[in-house]
Design a protein around this nucleic acid. Structure first.
Length: 408
RNA sequence: GGGUCGGUGCCCGAGUGGUUAAUGGGGGCGGACUGUAAAUCCGCUGCGUAAGCUACGCUAGUUCGAAUCUAGCCCGGCCCA
């Protein structure tokens, strides 16, 4: 189940190979710096330009997104030049990959904002002082039809259809829009524009990165290396991590929320998570799966929120499972009862506090025995309260993961 | 452009005039169990603090009554050009 890894020993480049699925081209025995990345790193007389492209579409990113960023940081630490491409041009057109869901077009202001949010989130990982940040509209918006046709003429339909995804969709008789063919070319052209030596990405980026190589060669440049990392599976252990599937751990989440998700990481995912999301040595992990989960959670939360906050989150998580968290109270998100008009039904409050999707959902949760007040199960669906004072200071929970402390 | 098939709830997919938010599966949520896991079993799975309101691509119509019939439109697949 674990993806294949590039394994090298005693090269002094352990950092390079950790958590990497594939490097291409890859001729381990070759002395040629154009087909052996280790050779290139050893012999280069200048910092390599290492490219990572991001989509400034969504606001919040998750630990899966952090993987190539972590790798980028490692290159920085080795003295190379990180080049972060903000795909503002691409984002404005909207990539319909996968579902034919039309993405809303983003205004330049939104792109700017999203990019800023993105940078804030990766700040704990990346040395932002030493990153070259480029917006791809800088060159893509200047392409005229002649140039675009030239780009298109470098590839055949057959080559395009070889791309995973396209092939599937074509086979399933799903629609494929013509402009989608432009995406790999645009991303590849980014590599031309910034003269990338290495491009980082998930394994799903192989095709696009390879197109970048082809284009670089076409334009007389030295082709880049591709360095692919596994796509992280989500906390459900089945699907790839994504916000829409809800199986993600966001970088902006509360420490407690991050911690509780991560400490439940499925056993089969633990090695993967350790390798890709932490720097911990993999040989010395605790035997007990439970301890491994805790260590993982603690380590990752520390990376983004600091060690102290992580420890607090751990304590809070333990408290909350036992029952009503009291000493852990300050780690639990608060909900102000002033937002509720009394008298109020409990299911209404559950919804208002964001613990349930809707009032009706809240009723169902109560019926299902999921709702607790200070650790005590609520049986009465219609339970109501006359004044906020009856609830202030108490902890309301739904299931094992959703907690809120009620305040006035 | 022509022909043809199709568009159902988060997803897939039944349903083809009439108790019904709409069979079933997946997913999700919750409960029991457990290692706060996996597996298993069970429950829930439109919105509204209420009266009630919205749902089967969109719009208009036929009907006491439509997701189911009619017309127009939009979108997609396939075949032909």
């Amino acid at each position: 189940m674990a993806p294949d890894r590039v394994a090298r020993e005693n090269t002094g480049l352990d950092w390079l190979y950790r958590g990497v699925s594939e490097i291409f081209p890859d001729r381990p025995d070759s002395e040629d710096t154009s087909e052996n990345l280790a050779q290139r790193l050893a012999k280069t007389d200048r910092p390599l330009r290492v490219k990572l492209g991001i989509d400034p579409t969504g606001a919040e990113i998750h630990v899966g997104h952090s993987i190539p960023v972590r790798k980028l940081r490692e290159f920085q630490d080795a003295g190379h030049q990180a080049v972060l491409i903000i795909g503002d041009f691409t984002a404005q057109i909207g990539d319909p990959t996968g579902k034919s869901e039309v993405r809303k077009q983003l205004t330049p202001a939104e792109v700017k904002q999203n990019a800023q949010t993105y940078l804030e989130q990766v700040r704990p990982i990346l040395d932002l002082e030493r990153v070259e940040i480029r917006y791809n509209s800088e060159w893509l918006s200047k392409l005229d039809l002649g140039k675009i046709i030239e780009l298109l003429s470098t590839m055949t339909v057959g080559q395009m259809l070889a791309k995973e995804g396209f092939a599937d969709r074509y086979a399933k008789e799903n629609p494929i829009f013509l402009h989608e063919f432009l995406y790999p070319l645009m991303q590849g052209y980014d590599s031309v524009a910034v003269q990338a030596d290495v491009e980082l990405g998930g394994t799903d980026q192989k095709f696009n990165i390879a197109v970048g190589r082809d284009l670089q060669r076409y334009f007389g440049l030295l082709p880049q290396f591709g360095l692919l990392m596994p796509i992280l599976l989500g906390t459900d252990g089945k699907e790839k991590m994504s916000k829409s599937l809800g199986n993600y751990v966001g970088l902006l989440e509360e420490p407690l929320s991050m911690y509780s998700k991560l400490e439940k990481t499925p056993d089969n995912l633990l090695p993967e998570y350790f390798e890709l999301l932490t720097d911990l040595p993999l040989e010395t992990l605790p035997e007990n799966p439970r301890d491994r989960q805790k260590l993982l959670a603690l380590n990752i939360v520390s990376q983004y929120r600091g060690e102290e906050a992580a420890k607090k989150a751990q304590e809070a998580a333990i408290e909350l499972v036992k029952g009503a968290g009291t000493t852990a109270a300050d780690s639990v998100p608060e909900f102000s009862l002033s937002e509720v008009q009394f008298p109020a039904k409990l299911f209404y409050i559950l919804n208002a506090a964001g613990l349930c999707k809707s009032g009706n959902d809240a009723k169902r949760q109560i019926q299902g025995g999921a709702v607790r007040l200070d650790g005590e199960r609520i049986e009465q669906v219609d339970l109501g309260f006359d004044a906020p004072t009856e609830l202030a200071g108490r902890t309301l929970s739904v299931g094992k993961n959703r907690f809120v402390r009620l305040v006035t």
